[in-house]
Each structure stands twice: as structure tokens, then as C-alpha cells.
């Protein structure tokens, strides 16, 4: 009898597959929740207005992934006018930098998609632009650093 039992698998021919047709279909879990949820540790987002440039994130980072750049536009604000630049060729998305952040300005977003042919695209200054909420003020967009400025340091 056990010879015929595997043939039971044939009944799956008539079933609807559970395959996620990815580019066309979203990833849903068993209850229909859309994934990734807010908890996913994806790329960083940093509120440049709230950040005080305390360098704590760079100290806890064991991968030496966080360096700092000066932003002259932020002169006169509280704290220092340096802001973190994250090298995603080093980052392991552990989130220790966000947990230690005293102002909670740095956090990880569920945004994880970055496919590129140029490795220099993986070093940039996280800003509010890639955060999950689109309704932030967009004035900060102009201080997003062009990754190409960092070529020689990479």
C-alpha cells in the first residue's frame, strides 16, 4: 500500500498554489497581513532636524559603518551640525544604532529594496525621504548627499 501513498500528492494539481507571484503580487502572511511590517529592519531613516550629531551611533556600530559629514545648512541648531552617513556595504541591520540614539531621530524603516549595478550607491546619508511616512516636510530633500561625492573614501 505504501507504494501508492505518494501518489496522493497528485491531488495538489488541482489546488491553488501558494506561490507569491512577486513583482505582481504582494507578500501576505497566513492571515492576510501585508509584509514586511513596520518591525522589519531595513534601511535607516534619520530626522535631520531632530538629530543632534552626538556620534553615539558610530560608537556602538561594530562594523564601522557609520561616518559623519558636516552639513553647513544646519548651523545654529542644537548640538553639532554633523549627521551620520551609513555605508550599507558594512551595515548588518542589527539596529543597535537606533536603540542607542538619545533623540530617537535615527530609526530603521521597512524599506529594504536596493538593487544597483554601482557599489557606490550603497553609501549615503539617510534622511526622512526613505521613511515609511510620506507626509513629512520635504524641505530636507535638498541636503540628501549624492553618493558619488564619497567615491574616494569608499
Amino acid at each position: 500500500m505504501s507504494v501508492l501513498k505518494p501518489l496522493k500528492a497528485w491531488k495538489h494539481l488541482a489546488r491553488k498554489p501558494h506561490t507569491i507571484r512577486y513583482p505582481a503580487q504582494e507578500h501576505l502572511d497566513m492571515e492576510g497581513t501585508r509584509l514586511p511590517t513596520d518591525r522589519l529592519r531595513g534601511f535607516h531613516s534619520n530626522d535631520l532636524e531632530k538629530c543632534i550629531g552626538c556620534r553615539m551611533c558610530g560608537q556602538i556600530c561594530m562594523n564601522d559603518a557609520i561616518t559623519y559629514e558636516e552639513i553647513p545648512e544646519l548651523e545654529g541648531k542644537k548640538g553639532k551640525n554633523i549627521r551620520p552617513v551609513v555605508d550599507y556595504g558594512r551595515c548588518c541591520f542589527c539596529g543597535l544604532c537606533t536603540d542607542i540614539c538619545p533623540t530617537n531621530s535615527l530609526h530603521l524603516t521597512p524599506n529594504f529594496k536596493l538593487v544597483s549595478t554601482d557599489k557606490h550607491d550603497y553609501k549615503f546619508m539617510p534622511t526622512q525621504l526613505i521613511t515609511k511616512n510620506e507626509d513629512y516636510e520635504v524641505e530636507l530633500d535638498k541636503v540628501i548627499f549624492d553618493a558619488k561625492e564619497y567615491k574616494e573614501k569608499f
Binding site: 501558494h18 502572511d29 518591525r39 522589519l40 541591520f93
Partner: peptide, 22 residues
């Protein structure tokens, strides 16, 4: 492996990552 993926979905909602949970 397809069914294992449902467990990874749980991990993702609980821990924030599919494979390396930290």
C-alpha cells in the same frame, strides 16, 4: 521549504528579520 516560509513570516513580525533575528 514552502511551509518553512510561513514560520519565517512569523519571525519577521516578531523580531523584524526573516533569518537573523537578533
Amino acid at each position: 521549504l514552502g511551509d518553512r516560509d510561513y514560520f519565517l513570516d512569523i519571525f519577521e513580525q516578531l523580531t523584524g528579520a526573516r533569518v537573523y533575528h537578533i
